[in-house]
């Protein structure tokens, strides 16, 4: 699905990622851990192609296509999707109109999906205008569900979300990643940034990575990594030269 090789990325003239490599197979979900400011969000933004991240070296191959320098919408049309942590407000654009314009699953199912995510009354509101933390997440997951990407990136899906919303979101994210399907037939992949790991209660992840100061320090069983980080923080990862 995704193959990142030796990726060097600058943000505002400063190198933030120093040669990151990562391979995600079809049907796999990976989680990305790391302290604040380690470059996790930059990695997601670079994969999606946002202008603030400049690739100086390395490549991003998506389903065999070199997308390293492709514009954002081409990557989206090739099947990438991202949940924003802090999306902008789009004044004058109704959420309902927006998802009708970007849907890849037709418009028929939209009302039912919106209802399931308690977003029906938000369809008539401007995108993200005055939405609370939980409402933004539900709006993002609704947008992603209708966009129906084959590769899903979630940037801290738990942040600012209460318990009830977490369950709604977790199940919606799981269904987006085809977690209800058998692993053999599942084709969708994901890359999830998490600090707390709560999302792993809903989504079984296959591989975990720790990113520190722009370097991939560790990869392995996601639950084991999370357990170790929870027990002793990232200092072990920094010391560990594995």
């Amino acid at each position: 699905m995704l193959e990142i090789n030796n990726l060097h990325v600058e943000v505002g003239g400063r190198e933030v990622l120093h040669g990151v490599s990562l391979t995600i197979q079809d049907g796999q979900t990976h989680v990305l851990l790391g302290p604040n400011g380690s470059g996790k969000t930059t990695l997601l933004r670079t994969i999606m192609g946002f202008g603030s991240s400049r690739v100086t070296e390395g490549s991003i191959i998506f389903n065999g296509v070199d997308v390293t320098y492709k514009p954002v919408h081409e990557r989206a049309r090739l099947g990438m999707g991202i949940m924003f942590q802090r999306p902008p407000t789009i004044s004058g654009l109704k959420l309902g109109k927006f998802i009708n314009a970007t849907t890849n699953i037709g418009t028929e199912e939209i009302p039912a999906l919106a209802e399931k995510l308690h977003m029906t009354k938000f369809l008539e509101r401007d995108v993200n205008a005055g939405f609370s933390g939980g409402e933004i997440k539900r709006s993002e997951i609704l947008q992603l569900t209708v966009q129906n990407p084959s590769f899903v990136m979630l940037d801290e899906p738990e942040s600012g979300v209460d318990v009830e919303n977490m369950s709604l979101l977790g199940h919606a994210a799981a269904s987006l990643l085809e977690k209800d399907m058998h692993m053999k037939t599942r084709t969708k992949s994901g890359l999830i940034i998490t600090h707390t790991g709560y999302i792993l209660d809903y989504i079984e992840a296959d591989v975990g990575h720790v990113l520190i100061d722009g370097y991939m320090r560790c990869s392995g069983n996601p639950r084991e990594i999370l357990k170790s980080v929870k027990a002793s923080g990232y200092k072990e990862c920094i010391a560990c030269q594995k």
């Binding site: 202008g51 514009p71 919408h73 989206a76 049309r77 999707g81 924003f84 927006f98 966009q147």
Partner: peptide, 14 residues
């Protein structure tokens, strides 16, 4: 710019 890129991430051209 972030508004344009937000919409582009859902598949709209620039």
């Amino acid at each position: 710019r972030d508004e344009i890129e937000y919409l582009m991430a859902r598949g709209l051209s620039e």
